[in-house]
């Protein structure tokens, strides 16, 4: 599935879509049969459980009558019948993990991605309806050229390729703007995908208490957030950023900083300035920037090239 993504160069969208849909169908069939298999295993286990219970009850009755036969003078003792050990079916074979755990894993994504009711595009696109969405095709978000290319080549997000992308974003989309090393633990990925899935399959089920109300990393006064940056000054200050950060917005060991929403940029820089974010170079660069200078940079970078 992943290897195919690399090889997609033809522009025959319908053919590619067919391939993607066939894949999806195969996958659903597989999942369906795996569920059926589990259901039948579960029924087997239930049957075995009642068998065992019956056997146990019979054994207890036998033991009781044997005891009474042996101790004739003793009246029948009150014996508490021990409860049978519960038998639990193994449920770990599902493709999707635990959405509740996924919500916790997703916390590290929320500085860039929103999901749920009222979710908007921030540094990354919102993730409502991500399953089945064509890569790089969400209206109004500025994707990397590579992501757009993958979408044009037919990449449509589903379980397997989202799993691959989360494991190593750059392995799937080499010059993606998503600055994330990847989730190495398969369980984390299947949990997070179960969580994301909740906001895709049936959008009407999006919980009312939307998880979009994230507290800011740093507490900034409305005055600081309201500063309108001087883009000329921002352009000069930005020349220092461009020594390291790619001007075309790609990410090569150093994250992209173009086309960020102004507020996110301002919050990030203040977080470095206050040493809440850890990177030493960024802490140093931010430490000497005034509120106005941070606003100027944010204004400059928000306008794009």
């Amino acid at each position: 599935m992943l290897g195919a993504a690399y090889g997609w160069t033809a522009r025959d969208h319908r053919a590619q879509e067919l391939v993607a849909l066939t894949d999806r169908l195969t996958q659903l069939e597989k999942r369906n049969s795996s569920l059926q298999e589990q259901a039948s295993r579960s029924a087997d286990l239930h049957a075995r459980l009642s068998e065992l219970e019956t056997a146990l009850a019979a054994a207890l009755r036998d033991a009781e009558s044997a005891r009474q036969a042996a101790l004739v003078e003793t009246p029948a003792a009150e014996m508490a019948r021990p409860a049978p050990e519960p038998v639990v079916a193994d449920a770990a074979a599902l493709d999707f993990g635990d959405p509740e755990k996924g919500r916790e894993v997703f916390a590290q994504c929320t500085s860039c991605h929103q999901i749920g009711q009222g979710a908007e595009d921030r540094i990354g696109p919102h993730l409502n309806g991500i399953f089945g969405r064509r890569a790089g095709a969400h209206e109004g978000f500025r994707y990397s050229d590579d992501m757009k290319m993958m979408g044009a080549d037919g990449l449509t997000w589903e379980l397997a390729n989202l799993d691959a992308y989360l494991e190593n974003p750059k392995a799937l989309v080499s010059r993606t703007r998503m600055n994330f090393a990847g989730l190495k633990d398969p369980q984390d990925r299947s949990d997070i995908l179960a969580y994301l899935r909740q906001f895709s399959a049936s959008p009407q089920n999006i919980p009312e208490a939307a998880p979009t109300a994230q507290p800011r990393e740093v507490d900034l006064s409305p005055e600081v957030l309201a500063i309108v940056g001087d883009t000329d000054y921002g352009e000069y200050l930005a020349s220092e950023c461009k020594t390291c950060h790619q001007q075309d917005g790609s990410d090569k060991g150093i994250p992209a900083i173009t086309n960020w929403p102004t507020e996110d940029f301002v919050v990030a820089m203040h977080a470095y300035k206050r040493q809440i974010r850890p990177h030493p170079v960024m802490q140093m660069m931010a430490s000497r920037l005034s509120d106005e200078e941070i606003a100027a940079l944010a204004a400059y970078f928000a306008q794009g090239e």
């Binding site: 020594t243 390291c244 790619q246």
Partner: peptide
């Protein structure tokens, strides 16, 4: 490792600059 990768990013950045 991240520091090394960062240095490669810097090389790309400065040579483009």
């Amino acid at each position: 490792k991240a520091t090394y990768e960062e240095s490669i990013g810097w090389y790309e950045g400065i040579t483009t600059d």
